[in-house]
Amino acid sequence: MTNAPVVFVVDDDQSVRSSLKFLLSTVGLHVESFDSADAFLRKNLPDSPSCLVLDVRLPGLSGLDFQRELGARKINIPIVFLTGHGDIPMSVRAMKAGAVEFLTKPFRDQDLLDAVRIALERDRTRREHEKEVLILQQRFDSLTSREREVISLVVSGMLNKQIADQLGTAESTVKVQRSRALEKMHAESLVDMVRMIEKLNGPSGRLR
């Protein structure tokens, strides 16, 4: 979040690459361009909001294959596709696979800039969410196994007494373990705790 956003451009045409870089630079965006999918894959991606502006027709790996390849590598970078001619079935496939936009060359500059802005925003949100889940996960990992047990039962809506009965301990013991778990998770309330557990159970979480 602290790092400046980066736009990656992959197009085999040098003129197009440099013109895109120039256009995006006029709105203050940092651009890194590549002439092939392989060249992009060799790059270590920075920990900053980023997106990919990708020509569908590439030598070697096609744009759509490249999109699938990124998915397989768990690289969740938003993609703005560029195509030489409006091929509707191709654009539908790309959008279904999570593309942000599918632009037909030549395109209006504003359309590209809007698409890039949306893509970066989407990536920023995703990154924030992933970061939050990561912190929650670290906190959750610091709980003892008994504290995790107590917390999962608390979240499911059971009362302290019921938990004590189920675990075969005293109600006072449950009370202590519960307050210690909340403290370790930095939860301000039980409601806050439930929200955190839900995040951990979500698509970016590790529970389940």
């Binding site: 440099s18 006029t26 001619h85 060359k105 500059d109």
Partner: peptide, 21 residues
């Protein structure tokens, strides 16, 4: 189309960028 569109795209991108500047 692709071959023709490439230079056209570049022309339009460059032109648009100039206008913005």
């Amino acid at each position: 189309a692709h071959e023709v569109n490439q230079p056209l795209t570049a022309v339009i991108n460059n032109g648009s960028a100039c206008l913005r500047l």
